[in-house]
Design a binder for these strands. Sequence first.
RNA 1: GGCCCGGUGGUCAAGCGGCUAAGACACCGCCCUUUCACGGCGGUAACACGGGUUCGAUUCCCGUCCGGGUCACCA
Length: 495
Amino acid sequence: MDLDKSYFEAMEAKIPKGKVRTRFAPSPTGYMHVGNLRTALYTWLIARHAGGTFILRIEDTDQSRQVEGATEVIYRTLAECRLDHDEGPDLGGPVAPYIQSQRRDTYGKYAHLLVEKGHAYYCFCEKTESEEDSGQFGRADDPCRDLDPAAARARVEAGEPYVVRQRIPKEGTTTFHDAIFGDITVENSTLDDQVLLKRDGLPTYNFANVIDDHLMGITHVVRGSEYLSSAPKYDLLYQAFGWEVPTYVHCSPVMRDAQNKMSKRHGDPSYEDLRDQGYLTEAILNYVALLGWSPRGELAEREVFSLEDLAQAFDLGGMSKSPAIFDIDKLTHFNALYLRAMSPEDFARAAEPYIRQAVKNPAIDAAQVTALLQARCEKLTEIPEKVDFFEALPDYGVELFTNKKSKTDPEVSKAMLQAAIPMLESLGEWSQDSIHDGLVALAESLGVKNATLMWPVRIAAAGKAVTPGGAVEICRILGREETLRRIRLGLDKLA
RNA sequence: GGCCCGGUGGUCAAGCGGCUAAGACACCGCCCUUUCACGGCGGUAACACGGGUUCGAUUCCCGUCCGGGUCACCA
């Protein structure tokens, strides 16, 4: 083993100091689920709130689980969500490389260093079945633990396969601190001599994490609470190296229901799935931020936060210890809020493609349609089905002409439509106001309520019971000719 | 099963020894109205249970129950 002191000194020298540094460290699975996104968001928020540095690190130490195009999904998602990183595989940085598979030598060196220090040992056992039959204790009494160091080193140098295991004290307790869970103390006897360096020379997740977080100068380690129980072993590792322990921030999981986490396996949506379902990135981030974190003090009642607002308001004290169930209805509500908050121009730009998906006829003015839609849709993807009647009159039944509230039935409707035709034909200009005034005046002269006339006109014009906009808007958009054609068609049905 | 963590309405949650226990989503009414929405107003609905500590517990402690996590040469 060459334990070149200067190597470690050089590594230490590169570590940036004095600023908050956080890292999002996904393993490339090709799927960015909501829990992942939330972890990335919180990690980013901690950095930005403090004016610190946000780092992207790819954890690909599992040779058997590589997924094609997986890192692209990560880059894409972070970029779309505007969770920009300052250092990473693509950008480089002072502590490059940022891909674990490219840091292999480093882990090996530190593993051997730890053996040298006596806090780890070489293990030549085939597999770890001994844990099974060691009774009460989850930990094996690994025979290699007490091998003579010199003898063990000789076997390693002779090329015998080995793993490096952490030497956990048999006695005593270890207490570690988490920013949201507080102090947690465990008996060392419940901790096992975990593998640090695998037989293939690559580090385990736990080891690589500690090494990288230290060497990259990470000050806040944000991760899922499933790592809570391995955290004491991390502290022991930091102690063994004589390193400063970073602040741990363990996040409770995002659940699909009371007992299951969100997962790809269950078909739960990833960020990109949600986006494809018509959810706005800002709405997703806003909602996800509030799943497990809530503002406190005077902000306690506020729910709408832009990314910038979040960066300013975010604090670890507002984080929840218990799991949160993902509620698509509430996300939908946020989406509707964001849709309505858009300027009419922005909304029109976003909505037009969806309108054109259903309405090809260039005579239909998409801009006029979007104006009707803004207060009426929760997701952009529901637009096509709402506006398809502009393209083609649906085949509808006469029962639609019956509405008890506006006192209309087929008989009344027939009279209304018959009266409407000459009026609409003689209208000077075809505008919102002229149609509206004409119809209202007609209702008055006929001695009926506006609704009694409007209902059949709208039904005849649209061919469906529920429409965005009323009779006037629909007629205006359809144009005089098409409106009259549809009303005559309605009359045919009523004949 | 051992160890660790958690437990306020269906959901997200505020609360951090004294409150008629916020707010939001969903749901249900009413108003507005040219259908549906939007908007406005109102309503149903919660401190898991049992012991302590205390003048006083949702809040602090213990136990029970329930839920989650973890016990890999996966992350």
